[in-house]
Amino acid sequence: MFKRLMMVALLVIAPLSAATAADQTNPYKLMDEAAQKTFDRLKNEQPQIRANPDYLRTIVDQELLPYVQVKYAGALVLGQYYKSATPAQREAYFAAFREYLKQAYGQALAMYHGQTYQIAPEQPLGDKTIVPIRVTIIDPNGRPPVRLDFQWRKNSQTGNWQAYDMIAEGVSMITTKQNEWGTLLRTKGIDGLTAQLKSISQQKITLEEKK
C-alpha cells in the first residue's frame, strides 16, 4: 500500500525546468507551479508516452532531478554507511541512485490517469530550513484521497528550496528505503546496493492501464 502511495505522490513532485522555475526561495510556489507544469506535460505528451513509456525517463531527467536534492536524499538512505564509504564508492552510488530515480519516478508518472491535487495554504517560513507541505491527491475514479507531506529543505548556501522526502501515513519514503535496503547494505555494503540500483534502473517502464 505504501509503495502505491509513494508512486501516486511522485506525480506531483516533478519540479519546473530552470527556464520557467518559480521563486526558488518559496517552496509553496515551487510546489504549486511544479504540480501544474507536471500535470500539463503528462496530459499533453501522452502520444509520446504511450508510444514509448521510457520517454518518461527524459521527462524526469529534464523536469524533476535538477530540483530534487538527489545527493542529500541518497546520503540519508545510506545512513551510517555513508561515512564509511570511499569517495569513489559515493560517486558510483550517487550515479546509480540518480539512474534509479529516473526509472522509479518514471514508473510513478506512468500512473497518471487524470488525477488532480490540492496544496495546503502557504504558511510563514520564518527562519525554518525544513518545511512540510501537505498535498491532497484526488483520484477521478473514486479512490479515497491521498494526503501527503512533502519535505522541502532550504539550501544554506543559495537560499533555494528543494524537495527531498515524502511522508505518507506517518511513514517517510527515506525511512522506507532504509528499511528495504538495510539488509543488503549490511551483507554486501554500498557496492552491493550500487549494483542492485544499476540493475533496477535497467527495467523498462510500463504503463498502468486505467481501472
Rank of each mutant, 00 (worst) to 15 (best):
K188S: 10
L109M: 13
I137S: 12
I174N: 13
W161R: 02
A120D: 06
A35P: 02
Y112A: 05
Q24G: 13
G170Q: 01
S84L: 11
T129C: 07
V12T: 06
I130C: 03
A75S: 11
Y28T: 13
H113R: 07
A34Y: 14
K154L: 12
L109R: 01
Y164N: 03
K198V: 11
Q118G: 09
A88T: 07
T194E: 10
E91M: 06
T183R: 11
I205P: 15
Q203L: 13
Y117R: 10
I49G: 06
A14K: 12
Y28W: 09
D32K: 04
A14S: 13
E122H: 08
R186V: 01
K102P: 12
L193K: 01
P47I: 08
V146N: 04
M166N: 07
K210P: 13
N141S: 09
K37G: 11
K102V: 14
D191V: 06
T158Q: 05
F2C: 05
L10A: 07
E33A: 09
P87Q: 13
E91Y: 10
M173K: 02
Y55M: 07
P124E: 11
P15Q: 08
A195M: 09
L5F: 11
G182D: 02
A92V: 14
D54N: 11
Q48L: 13
M31C: 01
I137M: 06
L148I: 15
A22T: 11
L11Q: 02
G192H: 15
A9C: 14
L16Y: 10
S201D: 13
M173H: 06
Q48D: 12
A108P: 13
M31K: 01
E45C: 12
L78G: 01
I59F: 03
A168R: 01
V77C: 07
S201A: 08
Y100E: 15
S84K: 08
Y93D: 02
Q80P: 14
M31E: 02
I167Y: 02
A95N: 10
A19N: 01
Q24P: 14
L30T: 07
K210A: 12
A85E: 06
L101Y: 06
Q48F: 13
Q203R: 09
K102F: 14
Q196P: 05
I49F: 12
L16N: 00
Q203A: 08
P140M: 13
Q80F: 08
P121V: 11
Q151L: 05
G126R: 11
L65G: 06
D61C: 04
E91G: 08
S156T: 09
I167C: 08
Q103D: 15
F150C: 07
Q69I: 02
P144C: 04
E99G: 10
P121R: 12
Y164H: 08
I13N: 02
E208K: 07
Q157F: 06
Q162N: 04
S201F: 10
D127G: 12
P27L: 05
I138C: 15
S84F: 06
E45Q: 07
A21W: 06
G79E: 02
A104S: 11
Q151I: 03
S172Y: 01
A104P: 11
F150H: 08
A22L: 09
Y164E: 00
M1N: 00
N44M: 13
I13A: 03
D61M: 04
A195G: 11
L65D: 03
Y55R: 13
E169V: 04
A95P: 13
Q48V: 11
Q178A: 07
Y100Q: 15
E91C: 05
D23H: 10
Q178F: 01
A9E: 00
Q69A: 04
K210W: 12
A75C: 06
T176H: 01
G159L: 13
K83Q: 07
Y82M: 04
A14L: 14
V70P: 15
I137C: 15
L64W: 11
Y105T: 00
E63R: 02
R41Y: 02
W152Y: 08
D54P: 05
P47A: 12
Q103P: 15
G142P: 09
N179W: 06
T187L: 08
D127A: 10
P132R: 04
A85Y: 03
T25H: 11
P53K: 07
Y82P: 00
A88R: 08
M166Q: 01
Y72N: 02
T175P: 04
A9T: 05
A104R: 02
L11V: 06
Q69E: 01
G114C: 11
Q118P: 07
Q36K: 07
R134T: 02
K71Y: 03
N141F: 08
I190W: 03
K43Y: 09
L207C: 08
S84I: 11
L16H: 05
L5W: 03
Y81L: 04
G74L: 00
I174S: 08
L184R: 08
K188L: 08
E180A: 02
D54T: 13
E45V: 10
S199T: 10
S199M: 15
G79S: 04
T183F: 09
Q24L: 11
L56T: 07
Q162A: 07
M111C: 05
P121H: 11
F97E: 05
L56R: 03
P121T: 06
T86D: 14
I13M: 13
A21K: 09
V8I: 14
P53S: 13
G79T: 02
I205V: 13
A18Q: 13
A104Q: 14
S84D: 14
L76F: 05
A104K: 01
I13D: 00
G142L: 10
E91K: 06
E169M: 06
L193I: 14
R143G: 08
L76S: 03
Q46V: 07
A92D: 12
W152S: 03
T86V: 06
L101Q: 15
Y28N: 14
Q162D: 02
D165N: 04
E122I: 13
Q162W: 02
K211R: 10
R41H: 04
Y93G: 02
L5T: 01
K128C: 06
G79Q: 03
L56E: 08
A18S: 13
M6K: 02
S17I: 07
L185C: 13
G114K: 05
R143L: 05
A9W: 14
Q123E: 05
Q151G: 07
P144W: 04
A75Q: 01
I200S: 14
D32R: 07
K188C: 08
Q123T: 14
L64C: 01
G159E: 13
Q46M: 09
A108D: 02
E208V: 14
L125Q: 07
I190F: 02
A163S: 14
P47Y: 07
T38P: 02
K83H: 05
I133S: 07
K128M: 12
T129M: 10
L76M: 06
D165F: 00
A34F: 14
E209H: 10
Y105H: 04
A51Q: 11
R143Y: 08
Q162E: 05
G79Y: 00
K102N: 12
D61H: 06
I133P: 00
M111R: 03
M173N: 01
S172Q: 00
Q80L: 05
D139W: 07
L125W: 14
E169L: 02
P140A: 14
D61R: 01
A19H: 05
Y55C: 09
L185T: 14
Q162V: 03
F97N: 15
G182E: 04
N179D: 07
G126I: 06
Y82L: 06
L78C: 09
P144M: 13
Y117S: 07
L42H: 02
L11R: 01
L5K: 01
G192Y: 09
L197K: 01
S17P: 11
F39W: 03
F150R: 00
V12N: 03
P140F: 15
K188Y: 03
Y164T: 11
A110H: 15
G159D: 08
